[in-house]
């Protein structure tokens, strides 16, 4: 049976791993390649690297980092942050990334999803959505959570999958950094509506939270950053715990 995936996320700024709370108060959290190697050894199923300061000047640094990571680790990884064109994606995939994620640029230009899916295949196109619950619904936010849109998250997820997104990385801004657990309701809603895998993100604080997001939230994968970076949860223990709770997990 297909296993549920545990995905550590590394936010990258100027070639270093960083972590903020609710997208703010950025702190240094180490060397990405070193951390990636460590996570792979501990049994991470996949890794996500989000370049939170991706600008054109930084693009080359990022592709060099991607190559260093690809040479070193033997599990799949996704790279995201500031990707806005087929050319950006081509560079990153050629550098050794397995998948890329798009966020703001896809909302501004949904055709990008279609172009990427046609050119590289849906399997490497991850749609990242930053979402916030307010006025009784979940809305899509852009630019790392700074810009609100009127787009409803469920509608956007459906549209993006129709355009060719192969996976959805859903981050709840209400939950991110709180360590109070993942956003179960919206994750479940999207997972049951679209037929592509959903990666739940934001809010992981305990091992039970992972169990809940798989069982109740119907997530296919769970992503977290700080609980892994700051060694509050060890990946081998987490995976053993989930296995003991009858969740399909690769040990």
């Amino acid at each position: 049976m297909l296993a549920k995936r545990i995905i550590p996320c590394l936010d990258i700024k100027d070639g270093r791993t960083v972590k903020g709370i609710n997208f703010e108060n950025i702190k240094d959290a180490g060397d990405p390649v070193e951390l990636a190697t460590e996570y792979a050894k501990q049994g991470a199923d996949e890794l996500v690297f989000l370049d939170i300061t991706a600008t054109n000047e930084k693009r080359k640094t990022l592709s060099e980092l991607v190559t260093r990571i690809a040479k070193q680790i033997n599990i799949p990884f996704t790279v995201g942050g500031g990707i806005s064109s087929v050319e950006d994606v081509s560079v990153l995939l050629n550098a050794g990334a397995d998948k890329i994620s798009v966020n703001t640029s896809a909302v501004k230009n949904p055709q990008l999803i279609k172009d990427l899916a046609n050119q590289f295949g849906s399997q490497c196109v991850v749609l990242a959505i930053d979402t916030k619950f307010e006025n009784n619904d979940w809305y899509v936010y852009l630019n790392g959570g700074r810009v609100k849109t009127e787009l409803k998250t469920l509608d956007w997820a459906k549209q993006a999958v129709a355009l060719g997104a192969g996976e959805i990385l859903l981050t709840s801004m209400n939950n991110d950094g709180t360590k109070d657990g993942f956003a179960i309701d919206i994750t479940k809603q999207i997972s049951e509506t679209v037929n592509v895998p959903i990666i739940a993100s934001g809010g992981a604080g305990t091992m039970q939270h992972f169990k809940e997001i798989f069982e109740k939230g119907k997530a296919d994968a769970a992503l977290a950053a700080s609980v892994f970076h700051y060694k509050e949860i060890a990946i081998p223990e987490l995976k053993t715990y989930l296995k003991e709770n009858n969740i399909e997990i690769r040990l």
Binding site: L2, A3, S122, G166, D220
Partner: peptide, 16 residues
């Protein structure tokens, strides 16, 4: 097929 039990397409991840 999308009608297969509990399956999403594409299959992405670790299987035995």
């Amino acid at each position: 097929s999308a009608d297969l039990k509990n399956t999403k397409v594409p299959q992405i991840g670790w299987n035995t």
